[in-house]
């Protein structure tokens, strides 16, 4: 029973955890905010001075910022599209009874265990390399000119690499959801005259919406901060063609040693991430109710 007494006790007992978590978040956040108002360059230590909103003005008016913003949204959107559609398709396939099901499922999940840097390097050197890569060989084998993915379609290539990494996650969650699909419901629909496609549209998809929502929310959080894949493949280039916000902040603060500018960028990125989060929760978060 929830009495006033037990509620007070509960609050007291969770307070250390709450305080710790708040501290964990608030201290770095406030330091970043503080730095973002300073003229703070690592090349001239000890010369920090108050700069007001200058850092923000520079960051927001930098043409690279809009490129990075667009790239970030394209990257997140592209990967979500590929993983949700691909994940649903794979989940449907893996849900079919077949020989060697256990092994196949483990193999499908394997890419998730590969570190981002490693998988990006493997893709860069073994698949997309215009001279030695597998794709280059394949193109040559059918008499086509090899395509230099990373310099001609850098963002597309990174979307591909990141999708490959996240596809297993989406597949796994959707497969689990698929397995809880009620068999009698399927049979009832079959008797009601629904074919395979109708059953997929009217039963499977609605059943999966909650799992799809979870996949989208979790992946968005991680995809907004994709970094390693860009660093080891394109370094954000050519130009800013594959620079996302995370990478832009990195370039600002650690390549140009401008901690103040970098912090301002970081704060902008946090605000944008929150806008995306609110937008997402508004749009699909209601699927999680009840």
């Amino acid at each position: 029973m929830v009495t006033a007494h037990s509620r007070t006790a509960a609050r007291l007992m969770i307070s250390p955890a709450v305080v710790l978590l708040l501290g964990w978040m608030i201290i770095p956040l406030s330091m970043t905010i503080y730095f973002s108002f300073l003229r703070y360059n690592l090349l001239s230590p000890g010369m920090e001075e108050w700069a007001g909103l200058t850092n923000y003005r520079y960051f927001l008016t930098d043409p690279a910022f809009f490129a990075a913003l667009t790239n970030t949204l394209l990257l997140v959107g592209g990967v979500l599209l590929i993983t949700v559609v691909g994940g649903t398709a794979l989940a449907v396939l893996l849900d079919q009874p077949m020989w060697g099901q256990g092994i196949v499922r483990i193999l499908v999940i394997a890419p998730f265990f590969v570190m981002p840097t490693v998988s990006a390097l493997v893709w860069k050197n073994m698949f997309m390399n215009p001279v030695n890569g597998l794709f280059a060989h394949a193109f040559k084998a059918v008499g086509l000119q090899p395509f230099d993915f990373l310099s001609h379609a850098p963002l597309m290539s990174i979307i591909l690499i990141v999708s490959w990494q996240w596809l297993p996650f989406a597949t796994l969650i959707l497969l689990t959801a698929m397995q809880s699909l009620d068999q009698e419901q399927q049979e009832a629909a079959e008797m009601d005259g629904a074919g395979v496609l109708s059953r997929f549209i009217y039963l499977t998809i609605p059943h999966l919406t909650r799992a799809i929502t979870v996949v989208i929310l979790i992946q968005t959080i991680f995809l907004l901060s994709v970094f390693a894949e860009i660093l080891v493949t394109t370094n954000g280039g050519p130009g800013t063609a594959s620079t996302n916000l995370t990478y832009l902040v990195y370039a600002q603060s650690l390549l140009q040693f401008d901690v103040g500018g970098g912090s301002a960028g970081g704060i902008v990125a946090v605000i944008l991430a929150n806008i995306v989060a609110i937008f997402l929760m508004r749009m699909i978060g209601k699927n999680l109710d009840t």
Binding site: Q185, E187, A189, M191, D192, G193, A194, L203, P206
Partner: peptide, 29 residues
């Protein structure tokens, strides 16, 4: 196939479609 036998079945677990209203459930066939 089941749909062409002009039989209707009521299952033990009811097997209703949970995301559809009663109207849509009844109207599904």
């Amino acid at each position: 196939p089941p749909a062409r036998r002009s039989l209707a079945m009521v299952f033990q677990s009811y097997a209703l479609y949970p995301h559809m209203s009663v109207r849509k459930n009844i109207g599904f066939p």
